[in-house]
């Protein structure tokens, strides 16, 4: 790890933005009656931050249901994301998608996804485009969880990407639980990264609370992909601080001691403990970022609240590129 000051501050800013978006945005969304499908990634910030710091807007990511962090790390505007969660027309998806479907193609963000491992083949497809049209210069990262690690489509995709030598990084955010089901029950191996061997690609396991460990491992995997050397599987062991959704009490299946252990390894705290003693960054600089991010969240909530709701006829927009609206309404006795 030999990062310049700008990069260090940027890593911290990204993690803090994710944390505050979760801590502020989710309750705000709940107060507006839209929290049924919102999943907090608080605790997991180091993973999207460390991975996406190696990517540009031309690179692609596919995300999960727990995807706010991926969006922010890939450069999606938190104000627009907040508007999307509130169901407003100014969200990147115009209020059609919400938390589980945030997409911003201008940032190479191929969508959070409500189907477990659902975005993995999309990332592989983007990697194919990169190979065919961009000489592998664009890299795709497929994020999935330890739950997604057990979906057939992931395994088919790892095989295909290996066979076709596609510039893709399969990134498993192993937070220990698929909803309420612990990894030690559901996974056949203690490490998801071990499964790489079956697909003839490197399998790397890192501490997903340590943004520098994630950054370094991802840098290597991304470089390998860009060189045309094919895919990698990167497993980041992390933890989610909250339940599967706001309706889930995680203490029904895990212990307070376990939560305290992981919170003691908080990625923002670890960052400060690592960087400040090195003297390059002062606590004041990080505190200033905290204040900026808090102000940004304030602005995001105000922006979302001030944004218009979608107009009724927008119900029929973007189902297709080209299709008669009348054919979507016909026979249904719709009010608009």
């Amino acid at each position: 790890m030999d990062l310049d000051r700008h990069t260090l501050l940027q890593l911290y800013r990204t993690m803090k933005t994710i944390r505050d978006f979760e801590e502020r945005g989710i309750p705000e969304t709940g107060q507006r009656g839209m929290s049924a499908s919102v999943h907090s990634s608080a605790g997991q910030e180091a993973v999207p931050t460390g991975v996406c710091a190696n990517l540009t807007d031309d690179d692609y990511i596919g995300s999960t249901h727990r995807g706010h962090g991926h969006c922010i790390a890939k450069g999606v505007d938190p104000k627009g994301m907040m508007a999307e969660l509130f169901g407003r027309a100014t969200g990147p998806n115009k209020g059609k998608g919400g938390s589980m479907h945030i997409a911003d193609m201008s940032k190479g963000m191929l969508g959070t996804n409500g189907i477990v491992a659902g975005s993995v083949p999309l990332a592989v497809g983007a990697a194919l485009t990169s190979k065919l049209r961009h000489g592998n210069r664009r890299v795709a990262v497929a994020f999935f969880g330890d739950g997604g690690a057990n979906q057939g489509v992931l395994h088919e995709c790892m095989n295909l990407a290996s066979v076709w030598k596609l510039p893709v990084v399969f990134c498993c955010e192993n937070n220990g639980y698929a909803e309420s089901t612990p990894v030690e029950y559901a996974l056949s191996t203690s490490r998801v990264s071990d499964r790489a061997a079956g697909y003839d690609m490197p399998g790397i396991h890192v501490d997903g609370m340590d943004v520098f460990a994630v950054y370094d491992a991802a840098r290597e995997a991304v470089a390998r992909a860009r060189n045309g050397d094919g895919p990698s599987l990167l497993e980041c062991r992390t933890y989610r601080y909250y339940g599967h959704t706001v309706f889930d009490n995680p203490l029904s299946y895990r212990t307070a001691e376990e939560e305290a252990h992981w919170r003691g390894r908080d990625p923002l705290k670890l960052f400060r403990e690592t960087v400040i003693p090195q003297g390059e960054i002062t606590p004041d600089q990080l505190d200033a970022i905290d204040a900026e991010v808090a102000a940004l969240m304030e602005e995001a909530v105000a922006f979302a609240d001030a944004s218009p709701l979608p107009q009724p006829q927008e119900l029929y927009d973007d189902v297709y590129v080209d299709y008669p609206v009348e054919m979507m309404r016909r026979g249904a006795n719709m009010p608009v």
Binding site: R88, L309, M328, P335
Partner: peptide, 30 residues
């Protein structure tokens, strides 16, 4: 006659989801 959802996916925003779903008013008018 029918009162159904439209030929679209289910939208997220409540502003649209409320229109999407069949309700009593649509049944009565039909």
């Amino acid at each position: 006659s029918r009162v159904t959802a439209p030929h679209t996916p289910v939208p997220y925003s409540r502003a649209l989801e409320n229109i999407y779903l069949p309700n009593e008013t649509r049944v009565i008018n039909t």
